[in-house]
């Protein structure tokens, strides 16, 4: 049985081995009741496939978009999501927490 928590890095390795461009998003800071702890990973392939999570599903869409941009540009970015963020109305975290996510490409 596969370790669910190790899945993002395993999938990232598979995509990378298949010659696909990939990005890795990592929760680097949390405030309040955010659903996933610091260090949680979301892996994204150039095809838009993804594995893992950086929240309970609330902000994954935005993070995947940012990851695809990072794959294209090669530039890492920092994202912040939370109740005080303008984005909150679109994708904010239902539980009221705040998270900071670092997105980098694997090159």
């Amino acid at each position: 049985m596969h370790n669910v928590d190790a899945d993002p890095l395993d999938r990232l390795a598979e995509w990378h081995a298949a010659g696909k461009k990939t990005a890795l998003a990592t929760v680097i800071k949390t405030w309040g009741s955010s659903p996933r702890p610091v260090g949680s990973h979301l892996a994204v392939s150039e095809d838009g496939d993804f594995a893992g999570s950086v929240s309970g599903g609330c902000i994954e869409g935005s993070v995947i978009e940012a990851a695809l941009a990072t794959i294209a540009s090669g530039q890492p970015v920092q994202l912040e999501f939370g109740v005080t963020n303008d984005m909150a109305w679109e994708v904010g975290i239902a539980c009221g927490g705040k998270v900071q996510v670092y997105v980098e490409s694997i090159s």
Binding site: A6, L9, L12, A13, H16, L24, E104, S105, I106, S107
Partner: peptide, 14 residues
């Protein structure tokens, strides 16, 4: 993350 760094990470986790 550079590929060689990712490779080292994978090996250590494995």
């Amino acid at each position: 993350m550079k590929a060689d760094l990712f490779e080292a990470l994978k090996l250590n986790i494995a």
